[in-house]
């Protein structure tokens, strides 16, 4: 970070500042300045100052820059929302504004992330330890991509289904459950799909089956209860 050329630094600052300013205007400044709460306005201004300070310290002190630009910015934004109180309902007056705000925060998160620069070869880094290239110990099964793609599509479907829930309390629950389920599903599907056809690192079939016996028994019991429930209805 400290050796970044000037144009690259400008680009980094723009990547961090623009989405942050967009998120701040759409979700922090709007409710804070639409209500008469002085405390909320103070926190909103402090939040914007933290974002600017984060971009300012980006080159000279990256850790301080991140502390201001991420933690302090989000912290003051949260404090703004708490002090606005019921005025926060202004954000939900139309479905467009929350969606725009969510997009702003998504871009903000991407803006603070790092990607390998185009044309940059990691092995050419002076700190890289030279050696022969590492050869993969096994090849992935052709089914790996298919299983992972199905899980990914299904997970997107689950997230979309959560938006169909209209009752407010259940809608919140649906979004929370959908997010947790998708994280768990993607993690499990990565393990399941990459282990297809794997022989060396997995124990014998009997031991694998025994390891899952408790969860499988619970699943069979749940299916049995469900069948009885359907019969009795």
């Amino acid at each position: 970070m400290s050796i970044a050329p000037r144009t690259e630094l400008r680009s980094l600052r723009a990547n961090m500042l623009l989405p942050g300013v967009y998120a701040w205007f759409s979700t922090v400044a709007y409710p804070a300045f639409a209500t008469s709460s002085g405390l909320a306005r103070t926190f909103a201004v402090l939040s914007a100052c933290a974002l600017l300070a984060g971009a300012w310290f980006l080159r000279s002190r990256p850790v301080v820059g991140r502390a201001f630009g991420v933690y302090a910015f989000i912290g003051f934004a949260l404090a703004t929302w708490v002090s606005v109180g019921s005025g926060l309902q202004l954000l939900g007056a139309s479905p467009v504004r929350p969606a725009v705000g969510a997009l702003g925060w998504l871009l903000f998160a991407f803006g603070w992330g790092y990607l390998r620069q185009r044309g940059n070869v990691p092995e050419q880094d002076p700190r890289a330890i030279p050696g022969p290239p590492l050869v993969p110990r096994a090849e992935l099964s052709p089914l790996t991509s298919l299983v992972f793609a199905l899980s990914l599509l299904g997970s997107l479907g689950i997230l979309a289904l959560a938006w169909r829930v209209e009752r407010p309390a259940q809608a919140l629950l649906a979004h929370a459950v959908a997010a947790a389920a998708v994280v768990w599903l993607m993690s499990a599907s990565a393990r399941v799909s990459t282990s297809l056809g794997e022989k060396k690192t997995l124990p014998s079939a009997r031991r694998r089956f025994n390891a899952a016996a408790r969860a499988l028994s619970g699943l069979i019991l749940a299916f049995a209860v469900g069948s009885v429930w359907i019969l009795l209805r």
């Binding site: 399941v192 282990s195 031991r207 694998r208 390891a211 899952a212 969860a215 499988l216 699943l219």
Partner: peptide
């Protein structure tokens, strides 16, 4: 609940030695 149990079973089947 069915989903949670099925997913737990799927990952338990891959538990390393």
């Amino acid at each position: 609940i069915i989903g949670a149990l099925a997913l737990r079973s799927a990952t338990d089947l891959l538990r390393p030695a």
